[in-house]
């Protein structure tokens, strides 16, 4: 099999890359696009550190052959900051001290953002379910759950227009 060209947008930027057959999206993002904020924690879809958004859906980039994302809109942790302003989730992770080693953080934020994007005021149970595919070995999860709930609370206080931004 030969390498092929694959096109997608990454954090709003058009990309057209020559990709070897079977190459995992996580490797393409990290090694060909320089988007190293997405981490490879297990390569088997069991830790969630590589979570990115494909057309708004949280997916595991270590399980996706990059050919399959042709034509998609991809958002990684690098695309969560808009106009150099942190997303409410990122602010909440800071305020709730929800990071330690930081290696799971990008995946956690991408999983949580996918939840808040479709359910801006989730229950604690919904937050737990959204994070249940992501492993953290340092924090004991509680600060992460608290951060997602705090971000939701902030979103609820904002005017709708600002929340959509």
């Amino acid at each position: 099999m030969k390498s092929s060209y694959v096109s997608f947008t990454l954090n709003g930027e058009e990309k057209e890359l020559l990709i070897e057959p079977g190459r995992r999206l996580v490797d393409v993002l990290r090694e060909q696009c320089g988007a190293t904020g997405t981490k490879n924690g297990c390569g088997q879809g069991s830790c969630g550190a590589c979570t990115v958004h494909i057309d708004g859906v949280a997916m595991l980039s270590c399980l996706l052959p990059a050919e399959l994302v042709d034509g998609s809109e991809i958002v990684t942790i690098e695309g969560v900051v808009r106009n150099r302003v942190l997303h409410v989730l990122q602010e909440a992770f800071l305020a709730q001290a929800a990071t330690q080693c930081g290696f799971c953080t990008a995946g956690m934020i991408m999983a949580a953002k996918a939840l808040l994007d479709c359910d801006p005021s989730p229950s604690r149970q919904a937050v737990i379910e959204a994070l249940s595919g992501n492993v953290c070995r340092c924090t004991g999860y509680e600060p992460i759950i608290a951060a997602v709930l705090a971000a939701a609370a902030t979103l609820a206080k904002r005017p709708a227009a600002a929340a959509a931004a």
Partner: peptide, 10 residues
């Protein structure tokens, strides 16, 4: 606090 919560979990 981070060590307490994370360590207790472990």
């Amino acid at each position: 606090e981070q060590q307490i919560v994370g360590g207790s979990w472990m």
